[in-house]
Nucleic acid binder design. Structure first.
Length: 616
DNA sequence: GGTCACACAGTTTTT
DNA sequence: CTGTGTGACC
């Protein structure tokens, strides 16, 4: 058995204070690299081991499945040090750790009927939502030209995030466009009900509604979850905030962890002010700052601090470290985006080939937009350096995967007209064969068997030419889907997993490097949150790109861009390279923009300017 | 019913 | 520039 001392060992004083804090609301403000996850998992372990809190009375909420899995693994190690894999352990000994959405889906499957939600509801992702909106527009005789489905969807989604329902929306609608949206919103809701579907936003909104209208259901959960720990609290939206308040209501043992300076998801409804106003929600809130950084050099931290301090609307933590000062932050002015890519490739090559102090996996390149990855990829391919690209089209957004899923979704829910539309689009004849097959088929097949039989009867795979490389990648993706199906023989479970758990990216994202995970990492600054690398390049630091042109006009948005740059900078452990191009080809357009204002906010004595001549 | 061509939009992203 | 999606035509 682990003793108390070993849970607290290797924790600094504020971390220990956070871990051992007793009853009542607790806010942990944790800067980048300050051991945030460590504090959270150790606190959960401490409650279980030292305070004898049964694991089932603890709830851990995160925003991504990745974060939830990470928590589980680390908690597992703390509780049963000899076991390394979550799967190999009786999960009953672990608290529920999951995303807000998966938690809500569970609640609604179980109790949703109380507010008219069928237990077998289908979950709509963004593209399903878009199709449902299109169907709504057609039904109401609105032109898609006048009302872009994506814009309408965005507005409705925002409303849902703020807990404004379709019946409430009309009273907030201003101007003709919003009044149109109000009408569409109502019709869209009606359609979802008919189709027995909930969109992602509904999972949160309906759960809050359920808890409001059925206090006895809420009481169940309140009683069960004596301790609630929430990660990345600055990313909560209004619905998640309300849900938190409901769940915490009885015991008031909320432990929220976050950092306003790392709030980068405002564009999708997150409101970092939830973090700042927690003090008003709980007058007895205890706040603990984690400001010692274990990741970066002092130079990197000082540069990042100076830069983020220009933000006026939220407090900024003062990070410090016992690591040394390290090298200055390097700044490279490139002639073009190609020159910029070459500079990076050369630098990586120098560090890994000529003087192999680092491996390619030690490097990350962070950019503002996905479109920037192409030039970088080309340079890496050219130089024969291994890389891995993070992001791109998500696995379940791929056409071939959505096609397969449409058949399966319709199989469990024939009300789902969005799925049916897709089935028809794949091919009318295929649709007929599929329907005929569905009628005579006994419903109790395993997911994999069913999927295979559908693929067989519809001859879906014949759409692909195994000679073509892109088609081959698609076939590989379907293979991957089959392997997911193997893990979830129950079709309903399978679909739930597919809707709420993102799969590793499909094969066409993978190049030779990925197999062994040995390449240089290429990703957006957003995708980099939560990661760290010895050497980080942040590229494209030009006005209009980073900060992005769509953010230039609003102060709030500029501040979010600045936080994003802060996140990017603080990924670096030992060396940080910044770069910008005097001229850049962007969407086929030659552009020329001044250096990003963010770089100007870094004190020059922390910077080192790199010339081309220095490269040789 | 299926294929091909043209128009057009194109931050960031998880669930 | 490039991927996607709609509409016209075979």
């Amino acid at each position: 058995m682990l003793g108390r001392s070993s849970i607290l060992a290797h924790l600094n004083p504020p971390q220990q204070a956070a871990v051992t804090y007793g009853e009542g609301p607790l806010l942990i403000l944790a800067g980048p690299g300050s051991g945030k996850t460590r504090a959270l998992t150790h606190r959960a372990a401490y409650l279980i081991k030292e305070k004898q809190v049964p694991p089932e009375n603890i709830l851990l909420l995160t925003f991504t499945n990745k974060a939830a899995d990470e928590m589980k693994i680390r908690l597992q190690k703390l509780l049963v040090p000899s076991v390394n894999s979550v799967n190999s352990v009786n999960s009953a000994s672990l608290p529920f750790a999951g995303t807000f959405h998966s938690f809500c889906a569970r609640v609604l499957r179980r109790y949703g009927q109380a507010i008219g939600i069928p237990p077998g509801f289908t979950i709509y992702d963004t593209s399903d939502q878009k199709e449902a909106i299109k169907q709504t527009l057609r039904k109401l005789n609105f032109s898609e030209k006048k009302l872009a489905p994506t814009a309408v969807l965005k507005t409705i989604s925002q409303a849902k995030n703020e807990m404004i329902t379709a019946t409430e929306y009309p009273q907030y609608a201003r101007g003709p466009w919003q009044r149109d949206v109000a009408e569409i919103y109502l019709a869209y809701e009606k359609m979802l009900r008919q189709y027995q579907a909930l969109d992602f936003d509904d999972l949160l909104l309906k759960t809050v509604q359920l808890f409001r209208s059925h206090p006895e259901v809420l009481a169940n959960y309140q009683n069960q979850f004596q301790y609630i720990l929430i990660d990345e609290y600055q990313d909560t939206n209004q619905a998640q905030y309300l849900l938190t308040r409901q769940l915490v209501g009885k015991w008031r043992n909320l432990c929220a962890v976050g950092d306003a300076s790392q709030a980068i998801y405002g564009f999708r409804g997150a409101n970092y002010r939830n973090l700042l106003t927690l003090q008003q929600d709980f007058v007895d809130l205890k706040t603990i700052n984690l400001e010692q950084n274990y990741r970066s050099t002092q130079t990197i931290l000082s540069a990042a601090n100076a830069m983020i301090k220009k933000n006026a609307s939220h407090p900024v933590l003062n990070l410090w470290t016992q690591n040394g000062a390290g090298d200055p932050v390097a700044l490279y002015e490139a002639r073009s985006e190609i020159d910029e890519a070459d500079f990076i490739v050369n630098t990586v090559a120098t560090q890994t080939l000529r003087q192999p102090s680092f491996s390619p996996a030690d490097f990350a390149i962070l950019y503002r937009t996905n479109a920037q990855s192409r030039t970088l990829e080309e340079a890496f391919l050219h130089a024969g350096l291994p890389y891995r690209l993070v992001g791109g089209t998500r696995f379940y957004d791929r056409k071939e995967i959505k096609d397969c899923l449409a058949y399966l979704k319709y199989w469990t829910n024939p009300q789902d007209k969005v799925a049916f539309k897709r089935i028809e689009q794949i091919g009318k004849r295929r649709a007929e064969k599929f329907l005929k097959f569905k009628e005579k088929q006994a419903p109790s097949l395993s997911t994999l068997k069913l999927l295979d039989k559908i693929l067989q009867t519809t001859a879906y795979l014949e759409l692909f030419d195994s000679q073509s490389e892109t088609d081959l990648a698609k076939l590989e993706n379907i293979k991957e889907l089959r392997s997911v199906a193997t893990q979830h023989p129950d079709l309903t479970n399978f679909l739930e997993n597919v809707a709420l758990v993102e799969q590793e990216n499909g094969v066409d994202q993978v190049n030779q490097a990925d197999q062994v995970n040995q390449g240089v990492t290429l990703m957006t600054a957003h995708a980099a949150k939560g990661t760290e690398f010895p050497i980080v390049f942040v590229v494209g630091l030009e006005e209009g790109l980073f900060p992005h042109s769509r953010s230039l006009l609003e102060k709030d948005k500029i501040e979010e861009e600045r936080r994003l740059f802060y996140v990017a900078m603080t990924r670096a452990k030992s060396r940080l390279f910044l770069s910008y191009a005097r001229r850049r080809l962007y969407f086929g357009q030659r552009t020329s923009n001044p250096l990003s204002r963010f770089v100007n906010d870094i004190p020059t004595d922390l910077l080192e300017f790199i010339n081309e001549s220095l490269l040789e």
